[in-house]
């Protein structure tokens, strides 16, 4: 079953995310998928995230479907030309994968194979249009398919991008091209996100706000300095720094910490509660902290 029924329902939607490993030990990613698969509506599997070579999204999607998760295949246009993109889409469908998130993907120079050839034969808008064409029964060259897929197609937007007008113009193209749901870059500032939602109210497409678990003050500062379109407010950085300091003191005294994790969970719950009246759902990106997702959703009243 694809995400489509839940997108068309009144339910507040929750999607999660897992990242395949660099290597062939799938234990951890399968465990994470098992843990969250039953309590979220879909689980994104990243596609060579951050351009760091690892197991592919397609194989991982197939494996997590076997353990009960509803996979969302992330597909970037960085590494494959139009032949391979279309072929992999058809391959995904025959393996039971029904949701695809179309992205361009981080540039190779940001990853661990910096001199790799960047393909970008298509951009994300063009990939959406091509995938929609496959749904309609034809490939990019208008050749008829023997049996057609029926993907539920998604796209991304960065609500903190500047200029926002230009970002929204591209979002409009994505919706026009066939996106049925939108997942956003990480949101930490509810007021800014509310402003963004006001500017895209003309788009009749479910928007799931991105929630990335803050693991430490250092991570927040790193994102502020290095991740375009993401701004973590000082207040959240101070809370994480204080929790980290408490944990450090506890550790030195030979006591148990856990304040940073508790604060991170509390912040995620606050964000979800703040986002809930503004949009159709949230996309939780735990970045390896998937084992905390059940608690977050319970505390937010979503599980």
């Amino acid at each position: 079953m694809s995400l489509r029924p839940v997108l068309q329902s009144d339910k507040f939607i929750v999607t999660g995310e897992v990242g395949p490993p660099k290597g062939v030990d799938m234990t951890h990613v399968i465990e994470e998928a098992k843990l969250i698969g039953g309590i979220v509506d879909g689980v994104n599997v990243t596609d060579i995230q951050a351009a760091a070579m690892r197991v592919g999204s397609l194989a991982t999607c197939h494996l997590i479907k076997d353990v009960g998760a509803e996979p969302v295949l992330q597909m970037v246009t960085r590494d494959r030309n139009r032949l391979a993109l279309q072929s992999d889409l058809l391959s995904a469908w025959v393996l039971g994968i029904e949701n695809v998130l179309c992205l361009t993907g981080d540039h190779p120079t940001l990853g661990d194979h910096k001199t790799a050839k960047a393909v970008y034969d298509l951009d994300s808008v063009q990939l959406l249009k091509v995938a929609k064409g496959l749904n309609e029964g034809h490939d990019m060259m208008a050749a008829e398919l023997e049996g057609k897929p029926d993907f539920c197609l998604g796209a991304v937007v960065s609500p903190g991008a500047n200029p926002l007008e230009l970002q929204i113009m591209k979002l409009e193209k994505k919706v026009e091209a066939g996106a049925e749901f939108i997942q956003t870059q990480a949101v930490y500032d509810i007021a800014l996100f509310a402003e963004f939602m006001g500017k895209v109210s003309h788009l009749k497409v479910p928007i799931l706000a991105g929630v990335v678990l803050l693991k430490s003050a250092g991570m927040a500062k790193y994102m502020n300095a290095n991740v375009a379109g993401v701004t973590v407010p000082d207040e959240l950085i101070k809370r994480m720094a204080a929790a980290g300091a408490t944990d450090k003191a506890a550790k030195e005294a030979g006591q148990k910490g856990g304040n940073a994790v508790a604060t991170s969970i509390a912040i995620a719950v606050e964000l979800i509660n703040g986002l809930r009246p503004l949009c159709r759902g949230v996309h939780l990106m735990p970045l390896g902290w998937g084992h905390h997702v059940p608690k977050i959703l319970q505390e937010a009243g979503l599980a």
Binding site: R78, D106, Y120, A161, Q167, K173, A228
Partner: peptide
């Protein structure tokens, strides 16, 4: 554009208007 995009920017425009690649 580092990615040669034709339909608008990716999410990688930095606050000071640079490409995240450089």
């Amino acid at each position: 554009c580092a990615k040669g995009l034709q339909n608008g920017p990716c999410g990688g425009t930095t606050a000071d208007g640079k490409c995240e690649v450089s």
